[in-house]
Design a protein around this nucleic acid. Structure first.
Lengths: 112, 112
DNA sequence: TCCTTAATTAAGGATTTGCTTAAACTAGCT
DNA sequence: AGCTAGTTTAAGCAAATCCTTAATTAAGGA
């Protein structure tokens, strides 16, 4: 589970983390602001933020004793690609071709 | 982590399971067929299938001693919704409105 | 300097995950 | 019935996850 896509999906697999990302859509926030809606301890919040950071979904910058977190949506693009490639029928044929091309190129990743 | 969306993201967080879903795009498969590309034991495969089933991503039907698995893409729609709602800037204003409407309706889910 | 605030690190515990091997179950074949 | 093939269940283990409380770091204000 060392690949980026797995880290992103895993980060999204927790309701608390998803809610944090949702909050960050309306702008940067400190750890305290992010923690406010939840009935869990600050260290627990810190750990969730570490998971989000590892997945590339947030960026943290420190001003004085306040750490500001900002949303980074780039990793979601990869996740979106995967999901869109796998849902519905509209692109089945296209995807099969796409997959075979990917195999020919021998990228060896798991997106096929 | 009892909600459906978390189960789906969690199911997608494993490369082996993603590869299984990819395989199922080209049609139903038996457990043996799904297991073939992987260097892990059959029980491990069975457990991965259980995770996918719990997330609603596959359906299993038994013919004789063969269990056939088929892809179900509906749960991916929900996942897609979440991801699309959170990436990019194109729909920021719309999403903020959307979110507030959802709050007013008091659905209480974590998609806000 | 001392105190408070904001956040993290450290350490630990309960639960879950992802794998294993061994045993059991199910259905068709002879 | 006995044999084989396909799959699941059971039991166990190492590592990861998600939480906790206590201690620590970092910065600002009296």
């Amino acid at each position: 589970m060392t690949d980026q896509l797995s880290l992103v999906f895993q980060a999204l697999a927790d309701p608390t983390r998803r809610a944090m990302l949702s909050r960050l859509r309306s702008g940067a926030a400190t750890v305290g602001e992010l923690a406010e809606p939840f009935a869990i301890s600050r260290p627990a919040i810190s750990q969730h933020l570490k998971v989000l950071e590892r997945a590339g979904l947030i960026e943290r910058t420190a001003h004085a004793q306040w750490r500001s977190c900002t949303l980074r949506t780039e990793p979601l693009d990869e996740a979106s690609d995967w999901v869109e490639r796998h849902r519905g029928e509209w692109n089945e044929r296209f995807d099969l071709l796409d997959e075979q091309l990917r195999r020919l190129k021998g990228t060896g990743d798991d997106r096929a």
